[in-house]
Design a protein around this nucleic acid. Sequence first.
DNA 1: TAGTGGTCTAGACCACAGC
DNA 2: CTGTGGTCTAGACCACTAT
Lengths: 270, 270
Amino acid sequence: MNDNGSASRRVSVDGVHVVDKTADRPVFKQIADDLRIQIELGSLAPGDRLPSETQLMDLYRVARMTVRQALASLKAEGLVIPEHGRGVFVRGRPVVRRIASDRFARRHREAGQAAFIAEAEGVGAPSVDELEVGHESATPELREIFALPARARVLARRRRYLLDGQPVELAASYVPSTLAKGTAIEQRHTGPGGIYARLEEQGHTLAEFTEEVGARMPSPEERSRLRLPEGTPVLTVRRIAFDTNGVAVELTDTVKAAPSYVLEYRFPAM
Amino acid sequence: MNDNGSASRRVSVDGVHVVDKTADRPVFKQIADDLRIQIELGSLAPGDRLPSETQLMDLYRVARMTVRQALASLKAEGLVIPEHGRGVFVRGRPVVRRIASDRFARRHREAGQAAFIAEAEGVGAPSVDELEVGHESATPELREIFALPARARVLARRRRYLLDGQPVELAASYVPSTLAKGTAIEQRHTGPGGIYARLEEQGHTLAEFTEEVGARMPSPEERSRLRLPEGTPVLTVRRIAFDTNGVAVELTDTVKAAPSYVLEYRFPAM
DNA sequence: TAGTGGTCTAGACCACAGC
DNA sequence: CTGTGGTCTAGACCACTAT
């Protein structure tokens, strides 16, 4: 577990947790290890407050910046969350939302449900926020995916999804302007079944979706829009819808708070 | 982009990048913003060295810890990588490995290729490392998935995968001991086609896989085993193999360095 | 040897939460 | 008001890299 084999020792002498200041392993890492072990073993349970920085200074006989460096490690690992003026708390297990890959099944569209609504079923009250709809010039990447000529335009729909008022997902959808013109896709409300239902009405029967899943750290803007604590990565999903001619007709990029989501896929062993 | 609207200003006076120490936005965030913008705009390109901490102290007229806090933000975002004694460098775009969901197709097994080998095709020289094989008692979670009685045991295979000598993935596979007993699954080398081929030989024809994809920050142990720089999340994939009776016969948990991987899935629009 | 980042100290003042 | 974490300063010594 330790990089160099010199384990941190949890020795208590007169209430002082002794750290070995001469060891190869930095003191702040020893303190972080010590606290991490207590979290993993449950003596510091989810929701519990860690000792205050002042208390930790006394406990380990170190300067405040050393304590803060140990806490910074735990924040970066996503184990604790600091709350200004209140304390540092052990992060609770997030409520995991399982998202199954049948969320785009035609039966949902026919039932008038857009994908996010189908996902949210039974989980909470879904809503949409910060909706921006407009035509814009296609990036080179989008032009390639949609096989569009130079200077082509796309209809972009950017929005934030909320569940019970909490932001959970950022999404940006793109449809070639030529396909969107004159349809409800250009409207704020796309109608029952969402974009996909409107595309099918226009004769673009959908045949297949592809999804590319990745993960990374959020930008500061994404962190604030999703109200993410420090040390929380995001899952990115790029979904492309293809019609029966194998032509890409729609692309959606989504960004989700990672530890709160699990994406489920199933495929035959063929 | 800014939390409070007070933009950081890149004003250069006598070579000093002025930050507003009275602004609401903390100085270290203003410095981080400044550097982030230069990275995003390309005036600091991937592989470039940032100004040294000493230079940044002079540039912004702040104490060293303030500079270090700004750099710590950029590290946590995964934008830069510090190298002791050399400098802080802009992280290059990682080589993305696309992993398609046909990697478990029977044709690969029949061609004698295990999944990781099929994945690595054309990417580099794959190898396996730190292989541990042994029977152990099943966790409650595994007992539930495999529908095993209390005190049941599983065969566990833990290993690290390398590509061109670089660690890229940690994996742990589990098969109920009753299914693995007496087969090559208990051996270090499972033979052509891997575990799945052996299970099918035993009459457990595979029908379906499910995968659950998530992301989180790595533990210190995972960071060191995957040689991950700070600020790098991991993708977690749990795959379960079901036989034609709908019974779970194998489970594999994998942990991959996130920004280097994209998982691809495709499914019909039905 | 000089320059770099890594660790640590001992202070200071501030903003926020809760009594 | 007290206690909490957030920010910042001005030093110090160390370990690593490159020359």
